[in-house]
């Protein structure tokens, strides 16, 4: 389905979107040296380049709405309102982390903010998200659920089982596919006959869209519409966001640390660098004369302070006590 938009945005909304994207970018970039030095060992799949998607979506969500994520979910967690200090501490696997150092980068959680589950089994949370939306549908609580997954997850059968059931029961769930064109190392044309992922939802009668995932305003608009569709009882909705990761599949760069697994062509990487969602929004804000360079710099300055504070918390925190190894297996 085609989607076009022309909208005027308030300064507050634009700077809010900008700040969220910058928080994700700078929080993640602060991890790079610690990953290289080995201080951070947990597999960290960076979201750099894809920030517009989590930001445009979660800005439209309330605290009570649910999200479920995947291995590359630092951005989802921060955009939905997760505490940065608890996230960085978790990535350093410290006791002060959001999962008390038991989960690491791939198991962030914050139920109080609707961040219900993030796990690295590809497609592993799609059915869980569908179940959470089923819970909402039974309770009639007007929550909506967003299931974040990548193009790689479209190879798993559970996605199609979940779409079928969600469509059958008209569940208030939005399937958000972040298509960064590579399933780990495999280009999309080597894993799918049809490169258009959104069309996979059509046979289930699910409204589907395919948009530029590096344009935060398009994401914001399409998601607002999708949410409305769900709240009116006409869910689910499927949205494919075209995007690109600016870092490695895991860690800052797949071509360092002894491996050379990033086979993406240089021209392609450079082309997508020009579509960096943060730079694009910055240019838009300047073009509209909505903020000065000083205001933009100030946002970055404050975010840097937040990142530093979060990192200080992580570094000064203890690792979990070995005597508590078996805590939390059961409730």
């Amino acid at each position: 389905m085609e989607f076009k938009f022309k909208m005027e945005y308030s300064k507050d909304i634009l700077l809010g979107l900008y700040q969220t994207m910058v928080r994700i970018r700078l929080a993640e970039e602060s991890l790079v040296e610690a990953i290289k030095s080995g201080e951070i060992k947990t597999p960290a799949h960076l979201y750099s380049g894809e920030e517009a998607i989590a930001t445009g979506i979660c800005t439209n969500l309330t605290k009570e709405d649910y999200i479920f994520g995947n291995h590359r979910s630092h951005g989802h967690y921060l955009a939905k309102g997760g505490d940065m200090g608890a996230m960085i501490a978790e990535i350093y696997c410290k006791e002060t982390g959001c999962s008390k150092g038991r989960g690491g980068s791939m198991h962030l959680i914050d139920p109080e903010n609707g961040i219900m589950g993030i796990v690295p089994i590809v497609a592993g949370t799609i059915s869980l998200a569908m179940g959470a939306s089923l819970a909402s549908s039974i309770r009639k609580d007007n929550r909506i659920t967003v299931s974040f997954f990548g193009d790689g997850a479209t190879g798993e059968g559970v996605l199609y089982e979940s779409m079928n059931f969600a469509a059958l029961k008209k569940l208030p769930i939005i399937f958000a596919c972040e298509n960064n064109l590579y399933s780990t190392h495999l280009p999309i044309k080597e894993i799918r006959v049809n490169e258009n992922i959104s069309e996979s939802a059509m046979p289930f009668g699910i409204q589907c869209y395919r948009i530029d995932g590096n344009d935060v305003l398009q994401v914001y608009e399409i998601f607002k519409k999708a949410k409305q569709i769900c709240l009116e009882g006409n869910g689910p909705v499927f949205i494919e966001f075209l995007t690109y990761r600016l870092r490695g599949h895991v860690g800052p760069d797949d071509n360092i640390q002894g491996t050379h697994t990033d086979i993406r062509p240089k021209w392609e990487i450079e082309e997508w660098l020009r579509k960096d969602p943060i730079k694009r929004l910055e240019l838009y804000i300047y073009k509209q004369n909505l903020a000065t360079e000083v205001e933009i710099e100030n946002i970055r300055y404050l975010v840097n302070l937040e990142v530093k504070k979060a990192t200080d918390l992580a570094l000064s925190s203890n690792f979990p006590n070995p005597s508590e190894l078996e805590h939390y297996v059961y409730r």
């Binding site: 479920f68 219900m116 589950g117 799609i126 869980l128 959470a132 089923l134 819970a135 089982e161």
Partner: peptide, 12 residues
């Protein structure tokens, strides 16, 4: 998917 739905609903 149905078992996952039960798990997800219980988490919620």
């Amino acid at each position: 998917a149905m078992t996952g739905a039960a798990v997800g609903a219980s988490i919620a």
